[in-house]
Amino acid sequence: MARLIRVLLMLALLGPALAQAAIEVRDFDDPVMRERFASLTATLRCPKCQNQSIGDSDSPIAGDMRQRVYQLLEDGRSDKEILDFMVRRFGDYVLYNPRLEGRTLLLWGLPAALLLGGALLVVLVVRARRRASSRRLSADERARLDALIGREEQR
């Protein structure tokens, strides 16, 4: 009985490993190529899915796109050429990292503009406070302050 359970357990543990074997395997002689493939398939967005990279998606089109990325890498194309190739067919939608161009200027520029605006605001507020606190009290104000904190006797 114990042996049977052990065998069943081992089979259960084997399950995921066998399932993994069904996933496509690609050979890269060059580790740099493997890195580039991994990063390209992570930054290209699957056009069929709402929010998955082609590296993560099981949809047929994502498989086709991975295959094409692999072929283009083998052909010695640059990353930019490969991204251009995909954008020409599937549009800007497939880029997780939008390019800096007229249409995306607001997208890229707004955070920087907000940061600068915030920094400017902080500087202005700090300077206004400092000026207010360093201003000399008039004789009238001094008398009122002394009265309030009860320092009259000491004078």
Binding site: K48, I61, F90
Partner: peptide
């Protein structure tokens, strides 16, 4: 093979 489909940007 879906080669023309790919060049047309067909995803379904």
């Amino acid at each position: 093979e879906g080669s023309l489909g790919f060049d047309l940007g067909v995803y379904g």
